[in-house]
């Protein structure tokens, strides 16, 4: 188990180094940061002075190693646009994104697991068909379209919910549904498939033959095993929700790090872009690593394969 954990951790670290190097080099090649800082009115002399001041006239790899050294200590530099420390800007906004991500994942799990279980218990029943319909809709609806439809109905027509901002919990209702609904189909179908497979297995038949109550068989024996792949998928979806919240945060004007990354990209605010890409990649890699380790703990066969 320890060897497996170390091997997976090393792979995760390698991915983060590659991501950071690629992001740094590509972003420096795609835009001139000196022009961004100088603004539209800057003269040639201003631009050249900025290049020297910030060290943009040095080779990209030198700049990368300098940045990486500081990033390891948690210092991502200052935003070219706002002049504030990037770590401070992210700390101000990460709460919104995490809140949205957690709520959206909870929403997805609360909808998908019970529906998946019920659909597995009664395959091809009306409930199963309804669950399938929900899954098809969830996969087919583009998130931004679904978000706009909710804004029209619940925000503009009925005026039940606030449309934009993150002042109250009510502001998170529509973004949570829009982001969480997209993850529901995959989680639900996986729960259903896992439950159908487990419910047909020998040990479940044995448990039933021993006279255990249906609820004990279902929740203690069947669901515990069927949920293993769902845990892995949920972790991946959580990473996706944090990174994929850019569209939702922009539509609902939630000022989280998804919105911040969108704003930074528009302005070629490279320190912010680099830090956020690294953070999103870290979320994704760490969550995948944790789900792998959790799965290995739940099913020890995984770590010896």
């Amino acid at each position: 188990m320890l060897a497996y954990a170390l091997k997976r951790s090393f792979a995760a670290l390698l991915i983060l180094i590659v991501v950071s190097a690629l992001t740094f080099s590509l972003s420096h090649l795609s835009a001139d940061p000196a022009l961004t800082i100088g603004g539209a009115q800057a003269s040639d002399e201003d631009i050249e002075a900025i290049r020297k001041l910030y060290g943009f006239d040095r080779p990209v790899y030198v700049q990368y190693f300098e940045w990486a050294g500081r990033a390891l200590a948690g210092d991502f530099g200052k935003s070219y646009h706002y002049g504030e420390r990037v770590s401070f800007m992210i700390s101000q906004r990460i709460g919104t994104t995490m809140t949205l991500g957690v709520l959206a994942l909870l929403f997805a799990l609360i909808i998908s697991i019970p529906l998946g279980v019920v659909a597995a218990i009664r395959p091809n029943s009306l409930v199963d068909r309804i669950a399938l319909l929900i899954a098809v809709f969830g996969q087919a609806l583009p998130t931004f379209w679904f978000a706009l439809m909710m804004i029209i109905v619940m925000g503009v027509w009925w005026r039940w919910l606030p449309i934009s901002g993150n002042d109250t919990w009510a502001h998170f209702v529509m973004p949570t549904i829009a982001l969480g609904y997209y993850a529901t189909p995959a989680l639900m179908r996986l729960t259903r498939a896992g439950m159908i497979e487990v419910l047909g297995s020998d040990y479940i038949r044995t448990a039933r033959a021993k006279g255990l109550s249906p609820s004990v068989v279902l929740f203690k024996h069947a669901l515990r095993n069927a949920i293993i792949p769902v845990v892995a998928l949920a972790a991946v979806w959580f990473g996706f929700m944090l990174g994929g919240s850019i569209v939702i945060e922009t539509i609902f004007n939630l000022k989280g790090i998804g919105w911040l990354s969108y704003d930074a990209l528009l302005r070629s605010d490279l320190p912010v872009v680099q830090a956020i890409v690294l953070i999103f990649a870290s979320f994704y890699v760490i969550l995948t690593l944790l789900s792998d380790l959790l799965n290995a703990w739940l099913d020890p066969r995984i770590s010896v394969r």
């Binding site: 539509i251 969108y262 704003d263």
Partner: peptide, 18 residues
């Protein structure tokens, strides 16, 4: 004065009285 980047959201807010 609220900073709202998305124009569709601005319009929805206008029509909703926000």
């Amino acid at each position: 004065v609220r900073e709202i980047a998305d124009v569709q959201t601005q319009i929805a807010e206008l029509l909703a009285g926000g």
